[in-house]
Amino acid sequence: MTSGYGCGCSAFPDQYAHAASARYDVPITMHNLGQGGLTSGQLLSRLSDSESAESQLVSSADIDLITIGANDFADQHEAITQGACLGAGVKVCTEDELRQLSSNVADIIATIRQRRQGLPTAILITGYWNVFEDGDVARASFPKAGLRASKDLTAVVNLAIQSAASAAGIDYVDLSGPFTRQTPSSDVTTLLAPDGDHPNAAGHALIARTLLSEGLPGLA
């Protein structure tokens, strides 16, 4: 999502950087290290490697935008979207992934702070509107039980991210609310690329605006 796959546009980190530069009247240099398929464990590993681009850039970054976690559940895609896991069963099916995501998010934040060595830093970590496909694509591909299970999984994933962020004193940025409020009948199709998974240009613009509205906690 962060890399801008499928949108044919400037991804939301670019849009955020331009908007923040204008709002705060300061030059902002943006480095987008988002990669398709990246998991929270892989991000943590890269941040922990002092020689990696991620680690070196984070050391000098005043603002960090983090969107991570959806790819952690790729192995459960079929079980969830076909309705094999329902209600409380969603947590049972993804118990190991949820536990690991919570731990990874906490460690990602701690590693960023370690790299910053006490320097003021704004860390904004987002959730998701859906960890899997949504809108018209999802309705055409999955049974109703699968659609419900996907929403249920998204809710518990967002809660895991939010809880880890809150425990570390970091602002959690909700995307589920803005996406559903922006569209008629909470149908997010108009904010999604043709794959039904990644945001389109309108979706990226909405994410950038949502991040900007959070201000710069920990920095300004």
Rank of each mutant, 00 (worst) to 15 (best):
S3L: 05
C9T: 04
F12L: 08
F12Q: 06
A17Q: 04
A20C: 11
H31V: 12
Q35K: 15
Q35Y: 13
Q35V: 15
G37P: 11
S45Q: 14
E54G: 00
V58N: 06
A61H: 00
I66A: 00
T67P: 03
I68C: 01
I68R: 01
A70C: 13
A74I: 13
A79K: 01
K91Q: 15
C93R: 03
C93Y: 05
S102A: 14
S103K: 07
N104F: 04
D107N: 12
A110Y: 07
R116T: 07
Q117K: 14
L119Y: 06
A122P: 03
I123V: 14
F132S: 02
D134R: 00
G135T: 06
A145E: 15
L147E: 07
R148S: 13
R148K: 14
S150F: 00
A164Y: 02
S166F: 00
A168Q: 12
L175F: 13
L175T: 09
R181K: 14
T183V: 11
S186A: 15
V188S: 00
T190Y: 08
D195K: 06
G196M: 03
G196V: 05
D197C: 10
H198W: 10
H204I: 04
A205T: 13
T210S: 07
L212C: 00
S213K: 10
S213V: 01
E214S: 14
L216C: 11
G218V: 01
